[in-house]
Design a binder for these strands. Structure first.
Length: 788
RNA sequence: GCCCGAGUGGCGGAACUGGUAUACGCGCACGACUUAAAAUCGUGUCUCGUAAGGGAUGUGGGUUCGAUUCCCACCUCGGGCACCA
């Protein structure tokens, strides 16, 4: 056996694995299936940085373990390649976004392959491929058919820098999620998807999936279900409907507040005596950005609608009506009954404008609602999804505007509507997509009446392609349907989906919505797309700051692979900290992972050259993995340690506790090296449990030891229950809760005997001198505490 | 403001269900090997104390034979939501 040359060795196996296609998922297999998924990357021009592979390696470990457990594993990858960075780059350089995407995906593919991740590359997909987005457009047409895609003139979030509309989910703290520019409001005709129709299901069905609790919670908060009552207040002959979660406080309602945009305000114009003042206020509010409206120290403002009054239906009292910016037009009914006694916001407002605060008694919520003719209702904070973008690099919305027929869907047989190649990708200030300038493409015939018509020039948001990509993996090359039903039935749902927390209320929610719609249409076989969802932490730059080009602290995995090898990088990334937590990169610390890998190589070498081979256990006791090894290897059974380590690694992988799994294997490796002889079969089991983490070196040693088949298709080792039991156990002796000494006992020894034995111990006697043991607490195989 | 999550050596982090706090790794120090260096191996490495022993898991209390773990109050950091009636 030669020296460890990671570059040669890793390349060799990567080529061989690819040639044999051992990571290809089989569509017709008798094995049980396992579908593991990572969020497919956006192929940016900067290439991979060391943060990208962390989730890939994590799920790779799960996938490799599943293969060895006998599953037919689908672990696919593709490219979520539509989006602004590529388009902006195209604008700057005058290059075709297609060419830019090709170049970027080539780089990403090469880099990911160099890490030995066991993706099934035969199923690679790309959202910008017309063969793919044909089906994104097709699904849109299904939404349209069912009335869930509709056009509406609404005030949308407009990013003046990116010159495009944004969904609510893409606005973070009043600024554009992507570029940080403060978002403006613009009235525009937009395509909308009626995600709110699924609000109830999206909320309720969270009970049926295995997501991390904080992910469920974040989705629940975003959907924002609340139960309350709609109650009507009479205003002259007109009616104001309010929504309240506290109908029981209605006797304390001393005024009404409408959102400034509330329709009734305009309708009552004639009766409002201070109309000039009211109109001025409405105008002021309209010109405010979200940031100004929600500024922290902002006090509430409002204007009374003088000349009109409302009647509280519970006690028939006349109360005043106000408009104020603290009431939102987009939630509930856009109007509230103000109860300053019980609601802090109403109280603030009442105090500022000297409105009555009365302490009327509480009444039964349901009874009073019924009595005043109201009804119990459920409201959601979730808004419909603004689905139009006024940019080039996205899926064209497959719709035609006909002068006579109105909106006409592009016939399914004419899909895909391909993006035309153009020279200028610059978005326009008018808020139109650059596609609007391509008259040759825009002007078309109406599919219905064959008359003059124009194509829709808005494109879809980059969340469109990613809302269903996991379905396409089940059947990525199908030309007739988005995926064959049989394949969908076999592969879905995704068994384990790992991704970033930043997608909880975006991609994760959107794709659940699409999936539920497709399920309703009978097009997919499960009501939820993902059975289990976990999240990984980010890798930060050295010192704990974000890795970014502007800070110049981005680490390229290419360099690490070159210097240390893919196996070392993989082990390091899994070892550096808990998988679900952010950790700072430390190039200095990688050496630890490399030393471990080299140690494994040395032991393998020793065994293959027959210097370390041995049969039968030599020692009698082993420490627990993760516990201190008390040097004396004569005392340890290396074989027991093998089995304890198999157990620990097997269990830790399932919990994504990769760091502690590696720690246990490091302990075992250190012990192996200290031990003169090791049984080859035991060592092979160690190679197997290490192989998901370090697939190349383990495959190499595996083959050197005479195995003909890949370690990837070997059977995951089991631990021997008897071997992980210790006959002799060390227990700690405490006196008054302080550790004083330790004794060794047989693990099956009776409690009484142990206690007796302890009392006679000389150290214990010394502490007992004069006093007497009041109480003795024994915790099996752990400790004994004597209270004096 | 509200809701999550976290706070442990010089650093990244361990600790099952309340049971030896600081595993594993980095760094550092010393030693072995070497002409030397690197690599590797070994030993040590929370803190005060010569020792016996004492003190430390953000701070202050509590429950318990025993608390990093449970409870209460507070501080700091990270994340989410943010006038949602």
């Amino acid at each position: 056996m030669k020296e460890y040359e990671h570059l040669k060795l890793e390349k060799k196996w990567q080529i061989l694995w690819e040639k044999k296609g051992i990571y290809h998922a089989q569509n017709n297999s008798k094995k049980p299936k396992y579908y593991s998924l990572i969020e497919f990357p956006y192929p940016s021009g900067d290439g991979l940085h060391v943060g990208h592979p962390r989730p890939y390696i994590g799920m790779d470990i799960i996938s490799r373990k599943r293969r060895m457990e006998g599953f037919n594993v689908l672990y696919p990858i593709g490219w979520d390649a539509f989006g602004l960075p590529t388009e902006n780059y195209a604008i700057k350089t005058g290059k075709d976004p297609r060419a830019v995407t090709k170049k970027n995906t080539d780089t990403f593919r090469r880099q990911i392959k160099s890490l030995g991740v066991s993706f099934d590359w035969s199923r690679e997909i790309n959202t910008t491929d017309p063969k793919y987005y044909k089906w994104t457009q097709w699904i849109f047409l299904q939404f349209l058919k069912k009335g869930l895609a509709y056009k509406a003139k609404i005030a949308i979030n407009w990013c003046p820098k990116d010159k495009t509309g944004l969904a609510n989910e893409e606005v973070v703290g009043g600024v554009c999620e992507r570029c940080g520019t403060p978002v403006e409001k613009r009235e525009k005709e937009q395509w909308m998807l009626a995600i709110t129709k699924y609000a109830e299901k999206l909320d309720k069905d969270l009970d049926t999936v295995d997501y991390l609790p904080q992910i469920k919670l974040a989705q629940r908060n975003w959907i924002g279900k609340s139960e309350g009552a709609e109650i009507e207040f009479l205003v002259g002959k007109k009616i104001v409907k309010v929504f309240t979660t506290r109908p029981d406080t209605i006797l304390g309602a001393t005024y009404l507040v409408l959102a400034p945009e509330h329709e009734l305000v305009q309708k009552l114009k004639d009766k409002i005596k201070n109309w000039n003042e009211v109109e001025k206020y409405i105008k002021e509010i309209k010109n405010k950005t979200d940031i100004e409206r929600t500024a922290e120290d902002k006090t509430k403002t409002g204007v009374e609608l003088k000349g009109i009054k409302a009647i509280n239906p519970a006690n028939k009292e006349e109360i005043s009506i106000w408009i104020a910016d603290y009431v939102l037009a987009t939630y509930g009914t856009g109007a509230i009954m103000a109860v300053p006694k019980h609601d802090e916001r109403d109280r603030d407002f009442a105090q500022k404008y000297n409105l009555p605060i009365v302490d009327k008694p509480l009444v039964d919520a349901k009874e009073i609602t019924k009595k005043v003719g109201g009804k119990m209702v459920v409201k959601f904070k979730l808004r419909d999804w603004v689905f139009s973008r006024q940019r080039y690099w996205g899926e064209p919305i497959p719709v035609i505007h006909c002068e006579k027929c109105g909106i006409v869907p592009v016939p399914e047989k004419n899909l895909p509507v391909e993006l035309p190649k153009i020279k200028n990708y610059e978005p326009t200030d008018s808020g139109e997509s650059p596609l609007a300038n391509i008259s040759k493409w825009v002007n078309t015939k109406c599919p219905k009446c064959k008359g003059k018509a124009k194509r829709e020039t808005d494109t879809m948001p980059n969340w469109a392609g990613s809302s269903w990509y996991y379905l396409r993996y089940a059947d990525p090359k199908n030309k007739k349907v988005f995926a064959d039903k049989k394949n969908l039935k076999y592969w879905t749902p995704v068994d384990w989906y790992n991704g970033g927390n930043e997608h909880t209320t975006l991609h994760l929610l959107y794709s659940r919505f699409w999936h539920k719609f497709l399920y309703n249409e009978g097009l997919v076989s499960t009501s939820e797309p993902y059975k289990k969802r976990t999240a990984h932490g980010m890798i930060l730059g050295e010192g704990g700051v974000k890795m970014s080009k502007s800070l110049g602290n981005v680490i390229n995995p290419d360099e690490i692979v070159k210097i240390y090898g893919a196996d070392t990088l993989r082990v390091y990334e899994m070892f550096m900290g808990p998988f679900n937590q952010s950790v700072a990169w430390s190039t200095e610390s990688i050496i630890g992972a490399r030393r471990f890998i080299e140690k494994v190589w040395r032991i393998g070498k020793g065994i293959s050259e027959n210097q370390k081979n041995f049969s039968g256990p030599r020692f009698s006791e082993a420490p627990n993995p993760g516990q201190a090894v008390q040097n004396s290897s004569d005392f340890l059974s290396i074989r027991k340690l093998f089995h304890k380590t198999i157990k620990k690694v097997t269990e830790d992988i399932e919990e994504m506790h990769f760091n502690t799994a590696i720690s246990a294997m490091m302990i075992l490796a250190t012990e192996m090296e200290k031990t003169e002889k090791i049984e080859t079969e035991d060592f092979k089991k160690f190679l197997q449990i290490l192989s998901p983490f370090a697939p190349h070196i383990t495959e190499e040693i595996w083959s050197i030891l005479g195995e003909k088949k890949s370690i990837n298709v070997s059977l995951w080792p089991r631990w021997d229950k008897d071997l992980i039991q210790d006959e002799n156990v060390k227990i700690v002796v405490q006196i008054n809760g302080k550790v004083r000494t330790e004794i060794f006992i047989k693990s099956d020894e009776k409690e009484e005997e142990i206690k007796e034995q302890t009392i006679k111990n000389e150290v214990v006697l010394r502490y007992l001198a004069g006093g007497e043991a009041k109480k003795i607490i024994y915790v099996k195989n752990r400790l004994i505490n004597i209270v004096v």
